[in-house]
Write a protein that binds this DNA or RNA. Structure first.
Length: 276
DNA sequence: GTGAGTGTTTCGCT
DNA sequence: TAGCGAAACACTCA
């Protein structure tokens, strides 16, 4: 589930709980989660201190004292939890970081899609595919209208799919893509080069505003997502279209429709969002 | 019990 | 090269 606001919420929680903590030992009950060399992963993390936790798009970057960075992507259902030393592994714990202060940091992932890798700090952009091709963060400064015009108008892709492509804009997922298209009154199957510059300006504003609002609300909880404190976000109460198929549009009352766009469930209003 | 659907990314094919 | 569809896996719901 995690999109940018959820990952940012996790980052803040982890920063509060484990920034400055030193790692004593690393157990990896599900070795497939680590895509770099497993032996080196365990060896290099042992004795390292977590100096800081950064985020880029939906990726978490654990900056370690030994000039290594652990890159972690939660994919669908990855979660971190902090437990006292000795606490039993969860059913889906894939990695257990034992800390010297008698706590342990678990990485749990029921669907086993999440991945982590250890790379030298500074090399992560080069070594981690996906991270190196990431588009700008959806912020006022990074996501300029000039950039939007350039990428949207030179492509002929369907806008919903285009927004989900992290190399265009980092951090949008299925939920917020549906939300911002509804807010901007753009049909999800509109091709990107057909969207006027004026509309792109509105879309840009809505993306920045929506991601920022969702982050303030600690993200959206659809199924199993919870933040590091085991709390759930409450932005789902703010969603206008996602998960509301067959219910009336909150703007015009028309029944919202659900279709597939590029394999992804997509909810929209057939009256407000007309295809051009 | 069975089949469809689920938040993300990568990879291979055209 | 750009774009599309399938695959990775486990669980829930109809």
């Amino acid at each position: 589930m995690p999109e940018l606001p959820e990952v940012e919420t996790v980052r803040r929680g982890l920063t509060n709980l484990v920034e400055g903590a030193k790692i004593k030992r690393v157990d990896v009950p599900y070795p497939k989660v680590v895509t770099s060399d497993l032996k080196l992963f365990q060896k290099d993390l042992t004795g390292a201190t977590i100096d800081r936790i950064d985020r880029r798009g939906k990726y978490l970057l654990f900056r370690l004292s030994n000039d290594q960075t652990m890159v972690s992507h939660l994919r669908m259902e990855g979660q971190y939890s902090v437990e006292p030393e000795g606490a039993a592994l969860h059913k889906h714990t894939e990695v257990a970081f034992h800390l010297v202060d008698d706590r342990q940091l678990f990485y749990n992932d029921t669907r086993r899609f999440g991945r982590m890798t250890l790379v030298p700090t500074g090399k992560e952009l080069h070594d981690v595919s996906g991270l190196k091709d990431l588009g700008p963060e959806p912020t006022e400064d990074a996501l300029t209208l000039d950039y939007m015009k350039e990428i949207f108008h030179k492509s002929h892709r369907v806008v919903k799919t285009f927004l989900l492509d992290q190399s265009n804009i980092a951090g949008l997922g299925n939920i917020y893509a549906d939300e911002v298209l509804w807010m901007t009154r753009i049909h999800p199957e509109t091709t990107t080069d057909k969207i006027s510059t004026r509309k792109l300006g509105e879309l840009r504003e809505n993306i920045i505003k929506e991601i920022s609002r969702a982050t303030e609300h600690h993200g959206t909880t659809v199924h199993s997502f919870s933040n590091i404190f085991g709390e759930t976000g409450h932005f789902q109460n703010e969603l206008q279209v996602y998960g509301r198929a067959k219910l009336p549009c909150l703007r015009c009352g028309t029944t919202l429709r659900k279709i597939k766009v590029g394999q992804r469930g997509t909810t929209f209003c057939p009256k407000c969002q007309i295809k051009k």
